[in-house]
Simulated assay, not measured.
Amino acid sequence: MAGLPDRKSLPDRKSLPDRRSFVSGAAAGLLCASLASAQDRLAPAQDRRAPAQDRLAIAGEPPRYDPRPLSAVPNAQAIGRRYWVPGLNEGYVPQGLTVAGNDILVAAYRSIDPRQDNGLAKVFRLARRDGRLAGSFDLPEAYGHPGGLASSGTRLFVANSGRLLALDLPASLRSGSPAIIGERRVDKTMGPSFLACEGDALWFGPFRRQGEAILYGVPLTRVFDGGSDPIGPGDASRRLPLPLLAQGATFDRSGGLWISESAGNRAGALHRLDPRSGAVLASYAAPGGIEDLGCATDGRLWAVSEAGSQRWSRWETFYPLVFEIDPGKLIAQG
């Protein structure tokens, strides 16, 4: 709150406006305020949202390295609970995300250098209800850029380019170290940059800036069948076309396919795809830096953004959050 002016700064009585000038000026001011209020009521919800949001209202440990308020983001009216990405102050950059029951699992690697895209990596466990950090465990050194997570029952799958890791999730969380079930090489044609699990199939997605991108569905029985050959496109029982710049995937409760899109310091997007043909049914603007996706049992999507992590703290968008999305409140792009 600004302080009161001192007496020396007050104008003398002769310089004050007369009563008629004051009244007419006040009336004009009230008219302008009324017009502004009307315009604000007519503005889209995402435009009215104040960019200087209260950082203290976000659960988790706020970043000490960057005091900026959270950026105003598109489709803010669809965003519900928001939690700070864990490990920001230690230099972790979020990548993979999946929802496992009442938990949100986030995979992140450690780097503050824009030229370094891998490092020590962890999986963090957040309580979905309130964002409380409920545990974590390290990933093996070979998984220094864990781009995607997916879960099936008690198994957690971790993607790293050319590699797939399967973990016993409850055992990993109890011990604080990865309880490895198995590991497979993957043909880099398939990435995997991200993963999704639906029914009896594990889906592998590559990140592509140009050309053709394909999402490959591989039966879970083929993923860890004891073979030593890398998993390749020939192992896929289904293939779907992907949008370019895809960063994450998840299936909703009705079997619908959702894809996140982002690349560097630019706007992000969400795409809803037909799970049978891969045709894009609708596209929605999303926070910049959006990475992997998950879907909770209540039908809400969850996502994570790396925009505002220490590695990417110079980006215009500052939104290093794990956040909930209500699909029913999204406004599609024209």
Results as ranks from 00 to 15, higher is better:
141 E>V: 14
140 P>G: 05
159 A>Y: 04
94 P>L: 07
137 F>C: 06
164 L>G: 08
139 L>T: 03
194 F>N: 00
151 S>Q: 14
158 V>I: 11
186 V>A: 07
176 G>T: 09
112 I>Q: 12
102 N>T: 11
142 A>E: 15
171 A>C: 08
105 L>T: 00
105 L>N: 03
169 L>N: 00
179 A>K: 14
112 I>W: 08
141 E>G: 04
104 I>C: 13
91 G>P: 00
194 F>V: 01
171 A>L: 10
107 A>S: 15
191 G>N: 04
193 S>V: 01
98 T>S: 01
131 G>D: 07
126 L>M: 10
159 A>G: 11
106 V>D: 07
87 G>R: 01
193 S>R: 13
92 Y>E: 02
125 R>K: 15
89 N>T: 05
125 R>Q: 15
95 Q>K: 00
82 R>P: 07
127 A>V: 08
126 L>S: 07
103 D>L: 14
132 R>A: 12
147 G>P: 02
132 R>V: 08
98 T>F: 01
181 I>Q: 07
103 D>S: 15
180 I>M: 06
169 L>M: 03
166 A>H: 05
130 D>R: 12
151 S>F: 00
141 E>Q: 14
124 F>R: 01
144 G>E: 06
92 Y>T: 05
193 S>Y: 13
131 G>M: 06
166 A>S: 12
176 G>P: 04
170 P>D: 06
115 R>T: 10
109 Y>P: 03
190 M>I: 09
166 A>G: 12
117 D>I: 04
155 R>I: 04
162 G>T: 02
95 Q>L: 03
166 A>T: 11
132 R>Y: 10
82 R>N: 08
135 G>K: 01
102 N>M: 06
135 G>D: 06
156 L>W: 05
138 D>A: 15
182 G>N: 14
123 V>G: 02
91 G>Q: 02
154 T>G: 10
132 R>P: 03
138 D>T: 13
163 R>A: 10
193 S>Q: 15
134 A>L: 07
91 G>D: 02
95 Q>W: 00
129 R>W: 07
172 S>E: 04
124 F>C: 00
180 I>N: 04
175 S>Q: 15
132 R>T: 11
179 A>N: 11
189 T>D: 05
130 D>T: 10
190 M>P: 08
100 A>T: 09
187 D>H: 00
82 R>C: 04
153 G>Y: 12
194 F>G: 02
191 G>T: 00
180 I>H: 04
171 A>P: 03
189 T>Y: 05
136 S>A: 12
170 P>M: 07
98 T>M: 01
136 S>W: 09
159 A>D: 03
152 S>L: 11
87 G>W: 00
137 F>Q: 05
146 P>S: 11
137 F>T: 12
107 A>H: 08
133 L>K: 12
189 T>A: 15
153 G>Q: 06
135 G>M: 01
118 N>C: 08
190 M>A: 07
151 S>N: 13
185 R>M: 07
107 A>I: 00
124 F>T: 03
117 D>E: 14
150 A>G: 06
118 N>S: 15
182 G>E: 07
144 G>V: 11
169 L>R: 07
137 F>G: 06
134 A>F: 09
125 R>H: 14
93 V>C: 09
120 L>H: 15
154 T>A: 10
138 D>V: 14
114 P>M: 04
152 S>N: 14
114 P>F: 10
149 L>S: 01
144 G>R: 08
148 G>F: 06
91 G>V: 00
160 N>P: 02
189 T>V: 13
139 L>Q: 09
176 G>A: 05
187 D>F: 01
167 L>W: 12
120 L>R: 14
102 N>Q: 11
